[in-house]
Structures are given as structure tokens and as C-alpha cells.
Write a protein that binds this DNA or RNA. Structure first.
Lengths: 199, 199
DNA sequence: CCGCTTGTTGACACGCCGCCAATAGGCCGG
DNA sequence: CCGGCCTATTGGCGGCGTGTCAACAAGCGG
């Protein structure tokens, strides 16, 4: 009987790629980009290091895939927003956002702040896409169908407020969910009713 | 006559340290943390690579110094806020913030988003300090002398909104300064009058 | 049971980083 | 003016992380 836990085994390319990606998501989520080496990923995946380059090319491309996975959020139930007056809808979208971000808080909240590598062009584009998606969700939730570029930018700013406030709740633990909810609904109503007129 | 542009020259330790730090600030400001090697810094400073380790220890410590420099902002003129009613003071602090961030926008705005290395404990602490300082400025500007931890956290969240909104103006160029000013004053007034009661 | 496709490996070359003994710049006393 | 000493500065060594590529073998088809 051999001690070898991993004899050489052939997998389907998709399966192998998925397995490596899962390990990478976990490791990059725990530590940062610079703190994780491809050797670590290879070891924990029980795979030769060269295989990572074979499937993902470079380390940065692997990290890019990881970011995309972390920022991918079930955009379901967005249409199931209760059609009420503006305060009701604002309350609903804020609650929905807090639910989502508290579930996979470790990954989404960490990735949206570029846990370890901002400044890279591709990574920034991926984060931009995620912020855009969240901003679109906010706009449609408050009943704005046709948005000007300025309004879209303001919605992006609001997403920035939402993430920083959520961080005070989930990571620093100094705000309660109720406090975060009140802050986000009040500011959202203010922005929609008082500021969006400039766009 | 020799082609050598840099014969070996002795400098005062402080002067040499300052010179290397200046080059590092410029390079880390342009590209990220991972994209700049200590060899690059040494070459552009006309210095042997080992000297960087001699003065700053490790590359991360050098980057930490760079972050501190970028986040250091003249906290002057904060006491010179016109003592008026709340809307006046809110208007003043927002205008002051926009002035400061637009002056050295390239450095401060880039550093506050951890251009290249978030997740590191020391770097995060440096950014936290800067956010704390900005939050304190906001709180004192709106006339709050004794603040609870929750109110401080909300002020930190507001700083997050301010930075993300400023980024839409200065980096993405899709908002005007007037729009940013209106958004930030309106939301600040809302937070102070409607949300701070929960703390 | 054999051969062929191709998933997988191991090693090579290169660049970056931290470290340290050796070197020389330039002030200072004679 | 000059020799000696302090120390700022250098260059190279060892180790590690990454990308590449030819060679290997797992497992299916004949």
C-alpha cells in the first residue's frame, strides 16, 4: 500500500478546471492576491503547478476568473420587487441587498474592494461591471427605467456607500443591520427625490 | 569624460531616504504594487537595489511608507470653518473635501482604494486611519463634538460615499463638480438629521 | 491486448527579493 | 595638503515564485 494520496488521474478538462478554480476561490478569498502562490493552489488541489498555467494561462488570469466568480450574484428575485410607492420599493431593494451581501459576505464584499489587486486594468473592469449591475438593480428598483449617464453614475456612487456601510456592519461589527438599513433607505430616498433632478 | 551619469555619491541618510521615497511614490502611484519592482525603483533613483532594503527593510514596508505619504493631507483650515447653521457648515465641509481631493487626486484617491494591495494588515490599518481622520473632520464640521461609535462608523460610511462619488467625477469624468457637491451635501444633511438619531 | 490521443507531469530558465561582506566617498584631525 | 577612519553604498549569493515546454502515461477505441 502506497502513501501516495494522489496517483496520476485523468479528468475531463471542464471538471479539472472547475476543481482548480474552486480551490483558487477559497485561497484567494482567505488571503490576498500576493499572499497566495500558484504552488499553494497546486498543492491544495493535488495537481502539478504547470497544470494551472495550462488551464488558466497566467496567475493574473486565474485571479481574474476568481474575481468574476466572487462577484457573480444570483440576480434573481429582482423582478419580484413589490410594486408599491417609492419608500416601500427603496426599503425592499435595501433589504434585498443586505440579504445578498450577508450571505456570501466573505467573497462578494471582499472582492468588490479588490482584495489584493486594484489598479490592474482587467480586474478594475470586472469590478466596474459588478458595480454597474448593482447600480442598474438600484435604478430599476426605484422605478427609473430610462437613466441618464449622470444618474447611472450617481447610482454607482450609492453602491459605494452601500458597500462601505455594509463593511462597517459585517467586517468591523460596529453597526447593526437595522442601523445600516435605516441609513441606506434614508440616503436613497434623498438621492432620488432631491439629487436626481440634476441629471 | 565618462558616460557614467551616476558616479558613486554619498548623501545624508535623510536626503537619500527622501529621494528614494519620492521615486517610489511616483512609480507606485502610476502602476500598482505588483507592477513595480524594487529594481525599477532602484534604477530610476540611480541607486543599487540593496540600498532600498537598507533604508526601508522590505518592499512592503516601503509601500507602507508610500501609502502614508499619499494619505497624508494638510489638515489645516479645518478650524476655519464658518460657524453658521447646519446646511452652511455641511456645504463648507463638502467644498473643502472636494478641493483637497481634486488637488492631489491622483495620489489620495488612488491610495484610499488601496491601489494594488488591500488585504494586508498594515496597509489596511493605514487606510483605516485616513478614513478615521476624514470621518472625524466630517463630524466636527457638522458640529458633533461627542460621537458614539455608531455615529463614527456612519461617518466612515459617508467618507466611502464621498470617495466613490469623487471617483465618478475625477476618474470616470461622468459627473460634474456641481453635481457631486449637491449629492454629498444633500446626503450628509439627511444622515445628520434623520439617521444619527439611532446612535 | 495494443496504440493513439491528450491530460498531466517535472525540470529548466528567468526575474524578483532579502541579506551581507566588501568597497569607496568624503569629512576631520594632523 | 594629506592620510585615516566612519559609514554610506555596492555587488553578488541563495532562495523563491512564475511561465514554458518536451516528455510521460492514463484510459479509450479497435
Amino acid at each position: 500500500m502506497s502513501i501516495e494520496v494522489g496517483q496520476r488521474r485523468r479528468f475531463s478538462p471542464d471538471a479539472r478546471r472547475e476543481q482548480i478554480l474552486a480551490v483558487a476561490v477559497r485561497l484567494f478569498g482567505e488571503r490576498g492576491y500576493a499572499e497566495v502562490s500558484t504552488t499553494d493552489v497546486a498543492r491544495e488541489a493535488g495537481v502539478a503547478r504547470g497544470l494551472i498555467n495550462h488551464y488558466f494561462g497566467t496567475k493574473k488570469e486565474l485571479y481574474l476568473e476568481v474575481i468574476r466568480v466572487m462577484l457573480t450574484v444570483p440576480p434573481v428575485a429582482l423582478a419580484s420587487l413589490p410594486p408599491g410607492d417609492l419608500p416601500t420599493r427603496a426599503d425592499a431593494i435595501v433589504g434585498w441587498f443586505l440579504d445578498v451581501v450577508s450571505r456570501h459576505s466573505r467573497s462578494w464584499l471582499a472582492a468588490i474592494t479588490a482584495g489584493g489587486m486594484a489598479g490592474d486594468a482587467e480586474v478594475d473592469r470586472a469590478i466596474d461591471s459588478a458595480v454597474d449591475a448593482a447600480a442598474d438593480a438600484v435604478l430599476t428598483a426605484v422605478g427609473i427605467t430610462t437613466s441618464t449617464p449622470a444618474m447611472h453614475a450617481m447610482a454607482r456612487s450609492y453602491v459605494g456607500l452601500a458597500t462601505s456601510t455594509a463593511r462597517e456592519w459585517l467586517q468591523r461589527g460596529v453597526l447593526t443591520r437595522a442601523q445600516v438599513h435605516r441609513l441606506l433607505t434614508a440616503t436613497l430616498l434623498t438621492m432620488v427625490t432631491q439629487v436626481f433632478g440634476d441629471a
